[in-house]
Design a binder for these strands. Structure first.
Lengths: 139, 139
DNA sequence: GTAGATGCAAAGTATTTGCGACAAG
DNA sequence: CTTGTCGCAAATACTTTGCATCTAC
């Protein structure tokens, strides 16, 4: 377990307000990938006076500070997740919406190579797999 | 080249109206990945009476019919591209917005394997690489 | 004390939809 | 003819912003 979001704010010079602390807390405790509306709901349970505008402003700020990442999965709203060292991609169950995180170093390496082959330095990437569960065998 | 968009409409039972023909034509002639607004502009040059609502309705219909694919690249509007047999992914120049299409069978294979490893059958995927151009000299 | 954050409501974007008129099969 | 499409404007969904007030540092 590395730095908490609050620690990251301090080290990045992001002012720590009451609202931001609450949003930080809710995000660290979330194991899923909530959208702003869902995050707002969770945050409201702790402090019902926080406005949705603040939630929007905060996730944007946290994203720019490298504290959260934003995902724009198919056809939906933006969803957020805490950013830790371990980068990963997502496998999305098209039936249930369940999201599985995975890492595949080989794919990562190949992506870098593809970019280089075209004369580019890879600065970011997005990989999403969409699948349906195979019920028969292993799990 | 294979079937034209008009042929695809016929074989899929999509009614061919004047507006759809024009949108089909503009899309087949586009080598980039226009968003709805851009597409609307191009279409309007041919028939200025077509409404943006029709453009929205048509790209949606074409997407559902497997004639176009929709991309939701970072932070922007949805962009469309004609769907042909040859699947490909995209490398996006983060400075200029230029889009390079590529195929890497090895990555495709690995994606399938990752999905299977988690008990899923891969039905779709999205891979976008974001890069900056490397000077031909060196770095 | 001051720069920056918040809450609120109003304003933007991007996209969808209800409806009467109209056109394709 | 009949069903589905079109154009229009109004509606929706998500996100951003202006402004007066408040708060962390």
């Amino acid at each position: 377990m590395s730095e908490t979001i609050e620690q990251k704010c301090l080290s990045k010079g992001v002012k720590l307000t009451e609202q931001r602390k609450i949003i930080a807390k809710v995000m660290s405790e979330s194991t899923d990938h909530p959208d702003v509306d869902e995050l707002y709901k969770r945050v409201s349970k702790i402090d019902s006076k926080i406005s949705i505008a603040t939630v929007y402003r905060t996730v944007k700020l946290f994203e720019e500070s490298g504290i959260l990442t934003k995902h724009e999965f198919k056809g939906g709203k933006a969803r957020y997740e805490e950013l830790n060292e371990g980068h990963h991609d997502h496998l999305i169950d098209v039936k249930t919406g369940e999201i599985i995180e995975f890492v595949d170093n080989e794919i990562e390496k190949l992506q870098k190579r593809v970019a280089e082959k075209h004369g580019y330095k890879l600065v970011d990437h997005k990989l999403e797999l969409y699948g349906v569960k195979v019920d028969t065998k292993n799990e």
